[in-house]
Structures are given as structure tokens and as C-alpha cells.
Design a protein around this nucleic acid. Structure first.
Lengths: 337, 337
DNA sequence: TTGTATGCGTTATCAC
DNA sequence: GTGATAACGCATACAA
């Protein structure tokens, strides 16, 4: 295992080609259209030498000099959320079109995105796409990142700032629609499975609409902390085990809703006749389940428009003040409610 | 939006503290135990200045100088695979213990990991954890990466090299066990839903055992390209729509198996009485489904031992020749078969 | 058209 | 104990 074979540098390529470092740099950096500055023959020699040495430019050195990483970072809490998968795929594709590389950072549930923001300020990437609802302290940190000429886009309904771009959706209105739908179908005892604390709006909608309909909320019917499929399943089982179980379950995510559906089936009840189930997110999986999942979620699953905006900002083609972008949601009635 | 506020450098901190750059570097870099070299009072001044300026050291410059990124990279094809989620969480946690940062790169399905390997050679990270089965050409590229003093660990049963660490499992034997189990229960017409091409062993096991039992394979019962839940669902529907549908389905992944279960339920058939279903992976979700999913997969879901080995290599505490690590699998009989 | 010289921000080696 | 100074590998302004 021949370790420690020193990686070739510009100088190695220059020596092999019999030219100077700068010539090699001009040819290989692709900038300033090296084609018209360097003679074809020199150019060929350089390319041949680089090829022979298997030269790869050093990111640290190039980044230090250019003040650019040509990298974007995507940060979210969990890979388990199907939308994060879609966002990651779109980000990678659009980044590639721009000659950029995409990296993902996981935000630990108990610590928040502080580490990622620190990394950004240390120069991890030129742009950040954050799927998270930061609190006030983190908003300040985010603004610091944005002030360092890096592009920042946050997907959150609850953050406020003019220093970076924010993507919002009408989660509240569509969730309210779903609750109204359940009530209109005669449901009074509706169980709630909360996903995590960062997205309050769907729960606010639940509370508000139930109050509007004059239905008092029983603490027993509210389960929290169902961040993953397993916990959501347990929460649903607890709801179904109540002396007076709910006739409908409103889950904070489609994943939680699917877990709830399994729990209902295991309890030997029918969906939606015995227990209706509604989720949030409208993930593709909801069209596979049996019965198909009624849900609230984005109309479009294409995140490329958002990402293109992020690259607009990276390239400086955006106004200095942060924009607010709307991503419309809808209530999709399928079979489970 | 006060953009372009130049980020503070060592010199800014030095000026504010009234000392030299080197002193600041010694204090802040944490190396060489700055505590005993620098006087407490100077040290305090430096720390105060850094705090006041909100100084964050530049990764590019530090990396260029130290020849270290203090970063590890995890690369895999899809976020949808639950195990990748577990690996990512464990990697992040162990990395944090070592003062390292973890980044994830998605390997595009149509291009393979070439881009990530290029990034590694350009100095993206000190170590790479690759969940992928590279072909011969990529193995050569991987060896190049490993030769540049970076730690490389690959999770694959099909790659061969002494230049990096390889993690294997007994996927073949346990898959064979599952097939034998189905045959022993009287199943002859067994449908196969292939996941992707990179993990051939489970399909080899299927073919070999069926042949051993003298059962000829019908092309109609073999479906390929079911890389995601949606495609697997379609594949299962096609199987069930056959004039003579299978009495059992062996899916290349648990996700595919769960999709198949939904398809079976939608077709109004019972599991396992009408159609038995077996998956591969033994993901946590399999204990939630109704019925619970019979599967083949890792005994342990804890990837930290592997990751600790990766860090051993990063720190140079490993023999130069690549190791082969075994990760045992088992056949888990639940309710679906 | 090509080469020389300088600096990006940091760390390490040396004097003092 | 602390401060100049020289690299790390690359890109660019400028000179030739």
C-alpha cells in the first residue's frame, strides 16, 4: 500500500510541461478563457502533463485564493423525511449545472444547527439551504453568515429576517382546511400526533379550528415527540388504547400518519370507517399506502426553482435584501379520511 | 443588509489585542498547548479580542497549512434508504467526538461516485465512508484516493482491494436461508423484485437456491429497477396481475417489500396466507408494518464500531494494508412470511 | 504569448 | 513568552 505518494501540484505540472506555474494555472483554471491567451501548443503540453500526473487542483488553496468554495451546503435534521431526499437530489443536480458541488450536513436534534453555521462562517460553502426553524439566537447567527457574502435560504414559516431569503408555505390555511373537513364529516374526538416543535402552524390550525367549532381538546388525545416512524407508531397505539379512542387522527407528518395507519390496522380497525387518518407533507409514499393517504402538502415537489434562486444569490444576481418566496400547499383528499 | 462586512482574520484579532499574529495563532489554534507557552494575561487579551470580533478561523487557510480538513465524508446513492440515515447519524456523532465535521455527498444514480472521488482527491475531507459497490475503474480511483493519505472505508461485498478498508456481510448465506424457508413452506412461484444492480449477492442466492430445489425461474416473475418505493409498488402490481400470480414475493429491500405489501393489500389478498413477503435490510420500519415484515439484515444497527475504525485510520493508528471487517446478518422471521 | 512576483489566512520554525 | 518570517498551493496583476 504505497501511501504518502505526494499529490502533484501546479509546480509539478509546470516542470513536466516545461512552462511556468502561471501558465499552467491559466490553462487549467478555466478562467479568463485560457484558450486565447495561451498558444495551442503550450496548452497541449500543459494538458498532457496534467493528465499524465493525474493532477487535481487543491480546493483549500484555490478557495483561499479565489475566496470561493464552489460548494453549496444543505442542512436538515433527518434523512428520514422524504422531502429532504427530493431537495437533496434537486440541489445536487442544479449545483452540478453550475459547476458546484453539494454537501449535506445533519443537524443534531439536541443541538440545533449551530455547528453547521459555524462551519459556514469558517468557509465550508458559498451558499446554505437550511431546512429548519431557527430561534432568535440562531437567526442572529444566520444573519452573520449572510453578512459574509454567503447566500442563505431558509425553509421556515416562523423565521423573520431581511438578511436572507425565506421560503414559506400556507401550511396553516391548508391544515385548517383538513381539520374542518374532519369536523364536517362528524368527527369530534380527533387525536393529534405532533411531529416536532419546529413547525407549530399545523398545530395552531388544529387548535384554532377545533375551538371555532366549539370542540374542547382533551389532553389524552394529544401526543407529542413523534419525530420518527417508531415513536409515531407508539403514539398512535396509545391513542387507540384509550377507553374512548379517537375516530380520527391528525398526524404532524405523513410518516407519522402511515405509522398511525399501521397501528389502526393492527388494532383490527378499519380506515377510514373506524378511524380516519390525515397526514401532513403529501409525500409520494401516500399514494402507495392502502388506503391512500389523505394529506396536506406542497402542490409541487420540484424544488429546483428555489435552488435556482439560491444560485442567483450566490452569483450576486439578487437584491441585497432578503426575499420571501411562497411555496403553495393544498389539501389532498384521498382514501384515508 | 450590511453585506460584505469583511470577516475578521488573525491579524484583526492581533491588532485589537495588541500582540502578534503568531501569538494569536498559538492561543486560538489549541495546538501545542498554548496554555503553557503564552502568559495568562496575554492569553486573556487574545481571547477577549477574538470574542469581541467574533473571529472564526478560515478553513481553507488552516487546511492549506495543516494539510488536514478535520472533515469526514459519507457518500451513498439515496437518502431514502433508512440505513443511510442511521449511518449518517452515527458518523456525525463519532466525528463530533473527534472534533471532526461530517458531510454527506449524494452519488447520482446515473453517474456513480466519480465526482465524490474527485472531490476527495481535491481535499474535501480526511476520510471517506462509501456505501457503494464500485466497478473496476472506480476501484482504481478509490485506491488513488487512499494513496493520498486519506482514510477510505467501503461498504460492499463485491469490491476487492488491499488499499482501503472493506466492510462485508453474509448477505448471500442469509438470503439463501430466506429462500429455503419459502420453499420449505411450499412456495414454488416466487416473485422477485430487484432493487438495484450493485448488490447482486441476494439475487445470486435466490437463483442458486431455486436451482438447488429444482425450481425453474420464469422471466415473468422477475422484476428489475425497483430502486424506490414507487417503482417497487408498480413492480409488485405487475406481479400480482399475472395470470398465475406468485404465492410469495422476495424483494431486494425492505422498502420494496413494504411497497409490495401495500400492493398485495390493495389487490385484496392476505399476507402471508395468499402472498408471503420477504424483504432485505431488516429496517426498523419492518416492525411497524401490519403484518410485521420478515426480513434478512444486519444483526446490529450500530455503525459506530465501523466508524471508529475509520477514525483509527484517519489518525494513522491502523496497519497500512486495508482490513476486511465482517458485519453479520441474520434471517428474521416475523409475520409476513 | 509567457514568466515573475505577490498575497489569500493560517501555522510552524526560528530568533529574540 | 513573544514576534518576525517563511511556507502551504493557487490565481492574478503586471512586466517582459
Amino acid at each position: 500500500m504505497a501511501r504518502h505518494s505526494r499529490r502533484p501540484t501546479l509546480r509539478d505540472v509546470a516542470e513536466r510541461a516545461g512552462v511556468s506555474q502561471s501558465t499552467v494555472s491559466i490553462v487549467l483554471s478555466g478562467r479568463r478563457s485560457g484558450a486565447d491567451r495561451i498558444s495551442p501548443s503550450t496548452r497541449q503540453k500543459v494538458l498532457a502533463a496534467a493528465e499524465a500526473l493525474d493532477y487535481v487542483p487543491d480546493q483549500a488553496a484555490r478557495g483561499l485564493r479565489r475566496r470561493k468554495t464552489e460548494r453549496v451546503c444543505l442542512a436538515f435534521q433527518t434523512l428520514g423525511e422524504p422531502y429532504n431526499d427530493l431537495i437533496a437530489a434537486d440541489l445536487r443536480a442544479v449545483a452540478a449545472e453550475h459547476g458546484y458541488s453539494a454537501v449535506i450536513q445533519i443537524i443534531p436534534r439536541d443541538e440545533g444547527p449551530a455547528h453547521t453555521l459555524q462551519q459556514m462562517r469558517a468557509g465550508l460553502a458559498d451558499g446554505l439551504l437550511l431546512v429548519y426553524t431557527p430561534d432568535a439566537a440562531l437567526t442572529a447567527d444566520l444573519e452573520k453568515v449572510a453578512q459574509m457574502r454567503m447566500a442563505v435560504m431558509v425553509l421556515s414559516n416562523l423565521v423573520e429576517s431581511t438578511h436572507f431569503d425565506i421560503v414559506r408555505n400556507n401550511e396553516y390555511a391548508t391544515s385548517a382546511e383538513a381539520v374542518d373537513y374532519l369536523v364536517a364529516r362528524g368527527h369530534v374526538r380527533i387525536g393529534l400526533i405532533r411531529h416536532n416543535e419546529s413547525d407549530l402552524l399545523r398545530y395552531n390550525a388544529f387548535h384554532d379550528r377545533m375551538a371555532a367549532h366549539g370542540i374542547t381538546l382533551e389532553p389524552d388525545l394529544l401526543r407529542t415527540g413523534a419525530d420518527n416512524r417508531e415513536d409515531a407508531f407508539v403514539a398512535a397505539e396509545a391513542l387507540l388504547a384509550l377507553p374512548e379512542p379517537p375516530t380520527a387522527i391528525f398526524a404532524g407528518s405523513d410518516r407519522a400518519a402511515i405509522s398511525a395507519m399501521w397501528a389502526v390496522q393492527r388494532a383490527g380497525r378499519r380506515i377510514p370507517d373506524d378511524v380516519a387518518v390525515i397526514g401532513v407533507g403529501n409525500i409520494p409514499e401516500g399514494e402507495l399506502t392502502h388506503p391512500h393517504l389523505t394529506s396536506v402538502g406542497p402542490i409541487s415537489r420540484d424544488f429546483r426553482p428555489l435552488i435556482k434562486l439560491l444560485f442567483q444569490r450566490i452569483q450576486g444576481h439578487m437584491p441585497d435584501t432578503g426575499q420571501v418566496i411562497d411555496m403553495p400547499w393544498q389539501f389532498v383528499i384521498r382514501e384515508s379520511a
